[in-house]
Amino acid sequence: MSGPGWISLDGRAREVLREQDGIAHVGAFDAAEITRRQLGALRGRGVLERPRTGWYVDPELPWQVKIAVRVGGVTTCVTAAELWGLPVPPESYRHVHVLVDEHDGRLRHSRNSSWVLATVEDDPRVELHWSRRHDRTTAGRTSLVDTLLLLVGCVPEAWFIAALDAALHRPRDGRPILDATEYGRFAELIPRRLRHLIDQAEPSAESCLETLLRLAMIRRGIGPIVLQAQPHPAHRVDFLLRGRLIVEADGEAFHDSERDRIRDAELVAMGYVVLRFDYRRIVFDIERVLDEIEAALADLDA
């Protein structure tokens, strides 16, 4: 095939993938009059990949999606939540969570699609979910509503609320990931016994660390807590306790240490006490973090 011929074939194959959200059955290529031999050549050229017999994917799709296709499903739960940009617990990365049809018995191993899974335990890399989908999938991941419905049963409550906060948060220059209509559907579908978690959501939270720390302080009985307080027109802080103690939850992606140092000095000069806690401490050492906050409050009262 000549150069122009390859360019045309590549374009037709990519168009099929675009129409199918990056994951297409061989039948879609048949309909586009792309032969099996041409599909083999397209694989060799890196235009598409075949993770499972009869299924082709865009090479740019996340590796987790390719594993899900190889197994015979789509990413869901913590894996889909991560792909949607929601926070998940650090230990969640050990498995790829895959949603499969409730009665699907043709599942394959994540490393080799020729290996048939006899039991769930046959593939330690994969966490399987058998559940119905309420919405269509998007690029190999369950919808945000379906993702949250499964996530609530897979992670600690605080992490689920952190994910819900992130989904509802409206950035200054954009829209929330979960819009009002989707949130309404989610609230209707979540089991009644878990609806109290929705009441604990706080869309103003700007990071999972803020949510985790807020929930931990409430659990310990620390308060009252003012969220996103503004003790000075030029400074907004994560938490203000008893009018004088400022508590900041620092994620490395959002904080400049030198700028924070200057700002803290200005706030201290105004009479505030400032405590900062990073990801490692909030996620792995939360009880000692709470102890330090309580000690600082006690010093204020002394």
Rank of each mutant, 00 (worst) to 15 (best):
E206Y: 04
R185K: 10
A167R: 05
F160Q: 03
A118N: 15
A139D: 13
R170H: 04
L107M: 11
A187G: 04
A118T: 15
E202P: 00
W159M: 01
R170S: 05
C208G: 12
I177Y: 05
A205Y: 03
R125G: 13
G174S: 10
I190D: 00
W130S: 07
E182Y: 02
T138I: 13
E121P: 00
A158S: 13
R125N: 11
L178G: 01
D199F: 04
P156G: 03
T181N: 04
L168I: 06
W130L: 08
L209F: 01
A205Q: 05
V145T: 12
V116G: 05
A187V: 08
S113W: 15
C208T: 01
E121L: 11
A201Y: 04
G105H: 14
D173T: 05
G105K: 13
A180K: 11
R192N: 03
W159L: 02
Q200R: 14
L144Y: 08
P203C: 10
G153D: 13
H109K: 07
R175N: 02
R175G: 01
D173P: 00
T138N: 11
T181C: 00
R106E: 11
L117T: 08
W130M: 04
D179T: 07
D122C: 11
L117P: 06
L150D: 15
A166Q: 11
L128A: 00
A201W: 04
C154A: 15
T181V: 14
V152E: 03
T138K: 12
P171L: 12
V145A: 04
